[in-house]
Amino acid sequence: MSLYKIARTIVAIILFPLYRIQVYGKENIPDKGPVIICSNHISNLDPPVVGITSPRDIYFMAKGELFEKKFFGKLLLGIHAFPVKRGMRDRNALRKGLSILEEGNSLGLFPEGTRSKTGKIGKALAGAGFFALRSNAVIVPCAIIGPYKPGKKLIVKYGKPLDFEHYRVNKASPQEAADGIMSEINQIIDNYQNKPDLLDK
């Protein structure tokens, strides 16, 4: 069993009962082919939560400083994380992300770039739009609806794949594409807050 599978199993055993995680829409994630899963970002626990609720193995970006310690860096690589330099355009990270998608894998992104301290949706950075436009990946929006409090219910909802063809045909900018993705995530959250029964649809 790979390190990723071992870590995923251990984390799932801990987090599922702790936060009473309920998952909806996993069937919206294709079994094969390149996929970009885009989620809102409300906690440092979001990457492992997306990782344990998705039926696909996911590659995530992680801040480059975490890879400076040799042992921890190898551990992160083993669980499908790769480094990105924050605060600048990291061409190596962009190439790595595109390579992951070209190989038919899943890439997990948080379009806001940093976690929201208020729990509300923030403005998207252009990065998610770049990957969506430069690849043929299926884009799946994901909403994590908290709070992260032991014993309280945590909702993870995967929406239907987005139709990105019109963005590509109309030569949309990465920022416009990223804004479109965040709008879809926000819509999932609004639907839950206003009509919780829509989660099953």
Rank of each mutant, 00 (worst) to 15 (best):
residue 157 K to L: 13
residue 57 D to H: 13
residue 14 I to P: 00
residue 43 S to N: 12
residue 59 Y to R: 12
residue 193 Q to V: 07
residue 151 G to T: 10
residue 170 N to H: 13
residue 91 R to L: 14
residue 182 M to R: 04
residue 103 E to Q: 15
residue 50 V to E: 04
residue 160 K to Q: 10
residue 193 Q to E: 15
residue 85 K to T: 05
residue 28 N to Y: 14
residue 86 R to G: 03
residue 141 P to D: 06
residue 201 K to W: 10
residue 147 P to K: 12
residue 30 P to I: 08
residue 82 F to V: 11
residue 97 G to S: 07
residue 173 S to T: 15
residue 171 K to C: 04
residue 21 I to G: 01
residue 72 F to L: 11
residue 4 Y to V: 10
residue 125 L to R: 13
residue 113 G to Y: 08
residue 64 G to R: 13
residue 187 Q to P: 00
residue 116 S to R: 09
residue 1 M to L: 06
residue 180 G to P: 01
residue 61 M to G: 01
residue 199 L to C: 02
residue 169 V to S: 08
residue 197 D to N: 06
residue 185 I to K: 06
residue 16 F to N: 08
residue 64 G to W: 12
residue 158 Y to Q: 06
residue 57 D to G: 08
residue 179 D to K: 15
residue 168 R to D: 01
residue 185 I to M: 05
residue 57 D to A: 15
residue 87 G to R: 12
residue 139 I to L: 09
residue 3 L to P: 00
residue 134 R to L: 02
residue 126 A to Y: 10
residue 168 R to I: 15
residue 140 V to P: 02
residue 171 K to M: 06
residue 94 L to K: 09
residue 54 S to C: 14
residue 62 A to P: 00
residue 179 D to P: 02
residue 96 K to M: 09
residue 60 F to G: 03
residue 159 G to Q: 05
residue 134 R to S: 07
residue 21 I to V: 13
residue 165 E to A: 14
residue 49 V to M: 07
residue 66 L to A: 05
residue 184 E to C: 08
residue 19 Y to L: 14
residue 166 H to Y: 09
residue 186 N to M: 07
residue 177 A to V: 15
residue 153 K to S: 04
residue 102 E to I: 03
residue 70 K to L: 10
residue 14 I to V: 12
residue 51 G to N: 03
residue 200 D to Y: 13
residue 33 G to E: 03
residue 189 I to T: 06
residue 185 I to T: 00
residue 20 R to E: 02
residue 45 L to R: 08
residue 190 D to F: 14
residue 159 G to N: 05
residue 43 S to K: 08
residue 95 R to N: 04
residue 123 K to F: 09
residue 179 D to L: 14
residue 42 I to W: 06
residue 111 P to I: 15
residue 2 S to W: 03
residue 35 V to S: 06
residue 126 A to Q: 07
residue 100 I to W: 03
residue 199 L to D: 02
residue 114 T to K: 07
residue 25 G to H: 10
residue 83 P to E: 11
residue 179 D to H: 11
residue 130 F to T: 03
residue 114 T to E: 05
residue 197 D to S: 13
residue 105 N to D: 03
residue 192 Y to V: 09
residue 22 Q to A: 09
residue 134 R to D: 02
residue 109 L to Y: 06
residue 158 Y to L: 11
residue 129 G to Y: 11
residue 127 G to A: 15
residue 104 G to N: 02
residue 86 R to F: 11
residue 133 L to N: 03
residue 121 I to G: 01
residue 92 N to T: 15
residue 77 L to M: 10
residue 174 P to Y: 14
residue 83 P to T: 09
residue 24 Y to W: 13
residue 107 L to Y: 03
residue 12 A to S: 14
residue 5 K to G: 01
residue 186 N to C: 06
residue 151 G to M: 09
residue 16 F to D: 01
residue 43 S to C: 07
residue 196 P to F: 09
residue 151 G to S: 10
residue 37 I to C: 02
residue 25 G to P: 04
residue 106 S to Q: 00
residue 97 G to L: 12
residue 80 H to L: 12
residue 137 A to N: 05
residue 92 N to W: 08
residue 170 N to K: 15
residue 157 K to T: 05
residue 175 Q to G: 00
residue 183 S to M: 12
residue 3 L to I: 12
residue 45 L to G: 03
residue 200 D to P: 01
residue 81 A to I: 11
residue 174 P to S: 07
residue 173 S to A: 11
residue 98 L to G: 01
residue 79 I to V: 15
residue 164 F to V: 15
residue 132 A to H: 05
residue 28 N to M: 09
residue 18 L to Y: 11
residue 2 S to A: 10
residue 85 K to H: 11
residue 141 P to N: 07
